[in-house]
Nucleic acid binder design. Sequence first.
DNA 1: AAATTCTCCTGAAGGC
DNA 2: TGCCTTCAGGAGAATT
Length: 270
Amino acid sequence: MPELPEVETTLRGIKPHVAGQCLRGAVVRVQKLRWPVPPNLSELVAGQTVDDITRRGKYLLLHLTGQTLMLHLGMSGSLRIVPDEIPVGKHDHVDLLLDGKRLRLTDPRKFGAVLLLDHDPYASPLLAGLGVEPLSAELTGDGLRSRARGRFVAIKNFIMDQKVVVGVGNIYASEALFRSGINPLRACNSLDSKEWNRLVGDIRHVLTEAIAAGGTTLQDFTGSDGRPGYFRQELRVYGREGEPCSRCGAAIVQEKIGQRSSFFCPDCQK
DNA sequence: AAATTCTCCTGAAGGC
DNA sequence: TGCCTTCAGGAGAATT
């Protein structure tokens, strides 16, 4: 499930192949992703240079000459650089054509997105309301504490809210809360300053470690080179229900919080 | 306004 | 072996 580390891994993998390249066109095989892919995408992007490629939250932004191509991997998407002659798979929905190779979006569950934005992409509705980048200095305990004031939503849902902080998904939310010793069901306004500071540090820490490991591969996530991510073995609670807590030995429990399965230690997460 | 539920999609896994 | 059900999840939309 691409969260920030998986998107960042993808960005770093494809950037050397894409930045500075001229787009020759695109192949759209499946239009029906989260939003319709522009059917005439090919003619719209042909001839434009990819000046830069950046990430905002879980979105990838290809800054073209006059527009911005916005990509989202949804929950099963991956981007890979492939040679022109490679066979097309069932879930290979969109190719961006470069010289002699292509950037291919593969997404079995079709929750991803390929959108072309005019003007300032950061003013678009999808990006304008996004929260702070967790790996930047914008993320502070005090900042989160003030955002949580007057709210009662579970802390796990709060840190997964992209309007609060971007990039933290279901896996890393559970992992960060475990490392902080905070029960995911706690109301977000019940954390004290010390807990907020600790949580901010652990969010940063777990995301940074995951990026260093190339992300987490659960089912079919691969980096742009086709290799899986190796952070899965570092997960301390996610997917480990019934296993002993690495800190206190109690059995890890699984519980749904806001429709999402969550994992935590009932003894040492207070 | 905030919180909760619904929805999209398909492959994997479990039940009988 | 095979069909059916359930689950997984990012996040906008709809609902409470």
